[in-house]
Structures are given as structure tokens and as C-alpha cells.
């Protein structure tokens, strides 16, 4: 509201709200003239004039400050964007550099083997084959990274279908359950019955659920439990909560877990894109995803999805 008023004052030269004192003094001057008191009328006019100048000056100052503030906001957003791009590129560089280095080494080795006398040595063909295989593997790894990256950048518009979220989650839970049981991880269900059907993109939501369950199992390692809860939240949203008894996420990492390429898994085990893809999917579905965690106790991911069509 304040901002709207300030904007108006900067666009129009005269705003009665800000000049109330001036108007009052001017009105008083008119009244005093009417009563024949010219001296006081003149004084009132002077007061009105001074008040007008002061108000105008103050309004301009406020408008200017406001402008500067929005400039600063803009700069802040811009610098955050740059930081994100910086992090993104260093992530990509890191992910691609490793396979590149391996490919470089293997090509050097192939060059060496291809020298006529080395080619005659026993086992040379087998070694050549090995090197080639390694190169093919690394090319595949790079392909996968770019594929995921494109997937992240591409604006896949969701296709909305009504879904029974309890059923959707249960299907994914069953997929995870067998492997989890082998690691002594129990899956506990706290589904609220008779939830309204949620307009969503079912395969995209499945991707998110599977990803979170997979992360939860990873965080637990061996022995523990994942609790899946669903409930109606505030009448216009369905809430899905996934709690694990895993290692938890330290506070300094919690702000970054949805950033692309942020991972705590050892190199080669995760690209750090799972949660950022999940985040962008949930946002596209009109929902929200949040995390709460305590180191040593576990982590809870909560997703809220709107029930009404957006």
C-alpha cells in the first residue's frame, strides 16, 4: 500500500494526501482574508508556502530513496543469479572434466599402442579394446549429464490428470520397499483416507516421490525407517511428508540442497540434480517443497500440492 502511494506521488506532481498541511494553511489564509485579518492571512500563506515546499521536498526524497532501494534489490537479485550461474558452471565443469581427463589419457595410450612395434606386442589388441570401451563409457557419462541438464532446463509443461496421491505414492513405496527391506529399512504408512483427487502430472510426481524415497534410503544407509504421511492441509492443499531416520542435513547445507549439482554423494554416485529437478517439478505443479532436518536424527521433506485447478 505504501509503495503504491509513493509511486503515485512520484508520478503526479500534486498529491492531496501529502499536502494536507499546506491545504489547511491555505484554507486558513482564505478564511482570515474573509474576516479581514490580512496580517495573519499573509502569515498563513507563508506557512502554506513553506509547508508546500517542505512536503514536495520530502516526497521527492522518499521517491528517490525508494528508487535506490529497488535498484539495490535488482542488483541483489542479479548478483544471486550470477552466483547461481557460477555455481552451475563450476558444477558442470567438474562433472564433465573427469570423463574428459579419462578420455584424454586413453587416447594417449591408444596413440602409443598404435606405434608399429607396440602393435606387435602380445595383448595389444585387447588393450586397445579396453581403452576404446573406457572412452565409450565416458562418452555415455557425459551424454547422461547433458541429458539431465537439458531436462532441467527444458520447460516440460505438465499434463494435468486427476490423481489419487495415496495410490500414486503407494506404488512407488512398493517399488522401493524390497530393496529397503534388504537394508533393514522399514517403510511406515500414515495415509489419510478419502483425500480429494489432486490435479497433477502423475509421472512427474512419481519421479519426485521416487527420488525422495531413494534419497531417504541413502541417508539411512542401514537400519531405520521411512515414514510416509499424507493429509489434507488447510482445505485447499494435500500435503505429503516423507520422514527418514537418516543422518540428517547440516544447517549450512540445507539452503543448498535444491541447487543444481549440489551433492554430498561421492563422485560418480550422484549428479546432484535429483532434488533440483524435483524442486522445479513441484513448482511447475503449483506446489511447494520444503525440508526440515536435524543432524543425527533425520530429515523430512514436505510437499504441498493444491487441490483446486490453478
Amino acid at each position: 500500500m505504501k509503495a503504491i502511494l509513493l509511486n503515485e506521488s512520484s508520478s503526479s506532481s500534486f498529491n492531496p494526501y501529502f499536502h494536507a498541511a499546506t491545504l489547511l494553511a491555505a484554507a486558513l489564509a482564505v478564511c482570515l482574508v474573509f474576516f479581514g485579518d490580512f496580517l495573519f492571512a499573509a502569515a498563513a500563506l507563508v506557512v502554506a508556502f513553506v509547508s508546500f515546499l517542505t512536503t514536495r521536498h520530502l516526497t521527492r526524497l522518499v521517491a528517490k530513496a525508494n528508487e535506490q532501494k529497488s535498484d539495490l534489490d535488482e542488483q541483489l537479485i542479479q548478483s544471486q543469479k550470477l552466483a547461481a550461474i557460477g555455481e552451475l558452471s563450476s558444477g558442470i565443469a567438474h562433472e564433465i572434466n573427469n570423463p574428459l581427463a579419462i578420455m584424454g589419457q586413453e587416447t594417449e595410450w591408444i596413440k602409443h599402442l598404435l606405434k608399429a612395434d607396440n602393435l606387435q606386442a602380445p595383448g595389444a589388441t585387447e588393450e586397445l579394446r579396453d581403452s576404446l570401451r573406457e572412452i565409450v563409457d565416458q562418452v555415455d557419462r557425459c551424454k547422461e549429464i547433458t541429458h539431465k541438464l537439458l531436462d532441467f532446463a527444458r520447460k516440460k509443461e505438465p499434463l494435468i490428470q486427476a490423481a489419487d496421491v495415496n495410490k500414486l505414492i503407494e506404488d512407488m513405496a512398493r517399488l522401493v520397499e524390497k530393496e529397503a527391506a534388504q537394508k533393514n529399512i522399514q517403510i511406515l504408512r500414515e495415509y489419510q483416507k478419502n483425500l480429494p483427487r489432486v490435479p497433477t502430472d502423475p509421472p512427474l510426481l512419481r519421479q519426485v516421490v521416487l527420488n525422495i524415497l531413494n534419497n531417504a534410503a541413502y541417508a539411512i544407509g542401514k537400519g531405520g525407517a521411512i515414514t510416509i504421511a499424507t493429509r489434507l492441509s488447510g482445505g485447499d492443499a494435500v500435503e505429503l511428508a516423507f520422514s527418514d531416520t537418516g543422518c540428517g542435513i547440516p544447517k549450512e547445507q540445507r539452503d543448498r540442497i535444491f541447487d543444481p549439482f549440489f551433492t554430498t554423494k561421492p563422485p560418480g554416485e550422484g549428479t546432484g540434480l535429483g532434488l533440483s529437478i524435483s524442486h522445479s517439478i513441484i513448482v511447475k505443479l503449483g506446489g511447494r517443497i520444503t525440508v526440515a532436518s536435524e543432524v543425527g536424527k533425520g530429515t523430512t521433506f514436505t510437499i504441498q500440492l493444491p487441490v483446486g485447478l490453478t
Partner: peptide, 23 residues
Amino acid sequence: LTGHASVESGVQGMHYGAFDYVM
């Protein structure tokens, strides 16, 4: 369609655009 319930293949399948998994 899966008989052995591998999470890794599940994650990959959904990522590559599968509609759903049936056990």
C-alpha cells in the same frame, strides 16, 4: 513392468519418461 523392484531402474525409468511402474 518389474519383477525385482530395482530402485535404480525405477529412478532411471521415470527420468526417461516412463508413465508408471507396475510390479
